[in-house]
Design a protein around this nucleic acid. Structure first.
Lengths: 170, 170
DNA sequence: CCGTAGTTTCACAAGTTTGTGAATATTGGG
DNA sequence: CCCAATATTCACAAACTTGTGAAACTACGG
């Protein structure tokens, strides 16, 4: 009963161990603010070879109701971590984790940063630009403006690094 | 009854407006995952000229119980956003928001990132490094490793920029 | 057009989190 | 060494969140 998948070259991944990873990873995400169910589903998709799973499969692997899957999916598609597709001729939705999730999700990050900057600048004028509090708020806003730019640069460098590592090999 | 603070050069900030800013800023922070009370207290300190407030003052301005202040402070000092001090000869704690909060707090950020990397690498071996899932997890780990380095560089650049802007002026 | 596989919505039960009042502990001053 | 001023802890109540079962909805296949 050991290895039922002699096809793969280096030993079949054992379901229990994978599920252990899924839960640990989900816990990390949850600690970072992602709601439980979305975190578990996302981790599950990441650990899936195809990166695609149907609602029923998720429901079964994670032992949760279809309703929970549906709700979590609203969240995940909302924040753009997962996309929903349906193959023609079937009624089942299939959920896919994108290959460059992190890249994409960081791209969207600066919307948040921009909101912070706006609130802070507004606070600066409210409190008086020449006051110490005003200076503190202004400096914070400057910092986030700086971050927005740096973030863009960083993502460019990452893309370049990837292209180099993959594309131009001998 | 309009301006009771003819001292300041450009009009006294009005309490209502400031409180409005505090609540809006706190709401942004809360949306980003900071618990409500800590967020409000932090925003309040940011909008305070001295950057320092006693427990009683916070309790009064935010209309919350001393217990709530105490609890929130445990959180804020924990994550290093605020420091607690007591002036000799008094029994009152004074809470201070540091000048370079954001800088400091981002410095601590890579602990989280490092944990993520570890979990992902572990998942990579669990799932099989040669599988598609393994590659996906490995690439994620690479991305976060990359981010850890970039973060350090970014903070250096910020510090340099500040030093330049302030110190070496004519 | 009807039947059915699948998804979404809804009302609610269970579990968490959050903030409070009261009691308890701590610390500086007399 | 005791008193008063603060701070912290605790048990609990209220509010919010989360996941479920069941009902309602959608859309493909015949």
């Amino acid at each position: 009963m050991g290895a039922q998948d002699p096809v793969r070259g280096q030993g079949a991944p054992d379901d229990g161990a994978v599920s252990g990873f899924v839960e640990r990873f989900a816990a990390e995400l949850a600690a970072a603010g992602v709601p439980r169910m979305p975190a578990r589903i996302f981790a599950c998709l990441m650990a899936e070879d195809s990166g695609v799973l149907t609602s029923a499969e998720l429901s079964e692997r994670l032992k949760i109701s279809p309703a929970a899957v549906s709700g979590a999916m609203r969240y995940l598609t909302q924040v753009g971590l997962v996309s929903k597709e349906r193959e023609p001729g079937s009624r089942r939705d299939r959920f896919r984790v994108l290959d460059d999730v992190w890249y994409e999700s960081l791209t969207r990050r600066d919307e948040v940063l921009l909101r912070w900057v706006r609130v802070l600048r507004e606070g600066e004028t409210t409190v008086g630009p020449r006051s110490r509090a005003g200076e503190r708020l202004a400096e914070s806003a400057d910092f986030f403006d700086f971050m927005i730019e740096e973030l863009a640069g960083m993502l460019d460098r990452w893309k370049a690094l990837r292209a180099e590592g993959r594309g131009i090999a001998p």
